[in-house]
Amino acid sequence: MNGANRALLFRLTAREIRSRFVGSATGWIWLILNPLLLLAVYAFVFGVIFQARVPAGLEMPFIAWLAVAMWPWLMFSEGVLRGSQAIREHAALISKVALPRQLLVTASVSAVFLLHLAGYLAVLLAMALLGVDLAWSGIGRLLFALASLYLFALGLGLGLSAIQVFVRDLEQALPTLFLFWFFLTPILYAPSLLPAGLAEWLRWNPMSWWMAEIRGGLLYAEALPGLVALALAAAALIVLWLGSRLFHRLSPHFEDFL
């Protein structure tokens, strides 16, 4: 990516982020406040009403177990969904201005990750202040996992956004598919709480591996990324490669079908 494209990506991402706050009086406050309010709701629902349990061997409230995985999931699912809509959303721009179109998808995915990263930080800090014992030494492993998750989301976003130009049905189907995916990923529950036969199936869901990576660092204090982290990064790169190949194959023809 050359300098001009980098500058353009930066502007597009900044605009994407700003567009969330344009017109709201207090703007950036909501960036922090929203995640904290959401955290409070989860704490009430799962901690007080359902009295959900953390897996054996961990000494922390359930909300910590949930929150550590919840925000990475939000980054991923919202990133893919918004990224896949980026081309349709900017149809007017695409049909009039010659610009590297993949930047529109990249900017969408990046904006979502940055916004949720800010929320994630706020949530982690709030939990630390409330006395939850998070292993800060695992932050490096967490960031590595998030980086590979970003590449994975970007690859899916690129591929899906290109397909969505031709197959409009995807727009309707994707949110529901991601809802399924959410419940098939150990976010609200621990894999160890599932019946043995069912837990076997989770290994086929890449997101359950990412969640294990993320929790491994912050909750289990296993600070160093292992082979799994490398494998996930490699898988993410492969998905990114496939996604951008698909994108570049189809992108010259977008204008005809938008």
Partner: peptide, 22 residues
Amino acid sequence: RYPPTVQSGERLRAFWQLLWRG
């Protein structure tokens, strides 16, 4: 040529053709 894009079937066919043959 502007491809036919009115029906979803036409869009789907164009999608496969572009994917495999460019």
